[in-house]
Amino acid sequence: MMPRKAPINWRGQLLGMLFAGPYLVGALVFLLLPLAMSLYYSFCNYNMLQPPLWVGWMNYRHLLHDHVFWRSLVNTLIYAAISLPFTLSLSVLLAVLLNTPLKSQALYRTIIFLPCLVPMVASALIWQWLLNSDVGLIDYALRGPLHLAGGVLAGLARLFGAASSTVLTLRNLQPPVWLGEPRWAMTAIILMSFWGVGQTVVIFLAGLQDIPKDLYEAAEMDGIGAVGRFFHVTLPMLSPVIFFNLIMGIIGSWQIFDVPYVMTNGGPGRSTTFYTMYLFDNAFTNLRMGPASAMAWIQLLIILFFTAIAFITAKKWVHYA
């Protein structure tokens, strides 16, 4: 910051703004103007063909009574609440494994990173095929173990005198119709998010390499085992990177669109209709720009809310060296 009283060097000022010019224009045209327009539209009845008509809070009020809106909001929250902790834990675990000095380390790293390179549309197609309920590979792989587990459970159930219908159900344990049953379709999409953790893993790997070696040596001298070192050295030292990935994850999980759009198109029922999908539907299928814009602003506020919570709680668990 320049001191308050320093006279402005007009030439420098102009030149600086000229260099930053692309973004000054860009921020105005592609960020601030759209934000203002979106706020205005959210109070309007607008289909892009006729000029916007001011309707006050109507769009927001209608959304409150729109069960699909709530469904998409809850679906997205469920997805984020389950997928985020699991993908973060999995990434830390994989990063620690991949940080172990092994000859085949580079190969393993590449393999785990590969899925991140694939366009989401292609990933969704691959998984749709893997999860196919008649001839899918996963279905087939699950049949044997489920049959075995079912048989054992049925035997146990009969031993404890369970109803014969229960015994029968257990004996006929089948893999789920993944994309055909509401709960399983959501499960499938969450499971698929585990496949794309490569980028997060690489960020964690970089974080791990920044942890000073002597911390581990000191811990070892004190007789702390490998598990203890993980919880008392690795996790605290990694917490700023975990925080970064958490924020990215919060913002990212609100954008989930490609995979459910291709894999389930929001179904069955509305079980995998996510927030961005319903916003897209409102805007470009039904040409209801008002509710779509209201949804955009609600989304913005929700993201800000969660990010703020992350930042506030960060003081408690993020350790900056």
Binding site: L31, S38, Q255, L279, A292, T307
Partner: peptide, 28 residues
Amino acid sequence: MQWRGRNVVFGIALASMMIPFPVLMVPL
């Protein structure tokens, strides 16, 4: 470069990273 307002501009750039594309989709 030294010019007034550059910190504000940088702040806007930082904050805008939290705004995902779907939010701006309709007005864009």
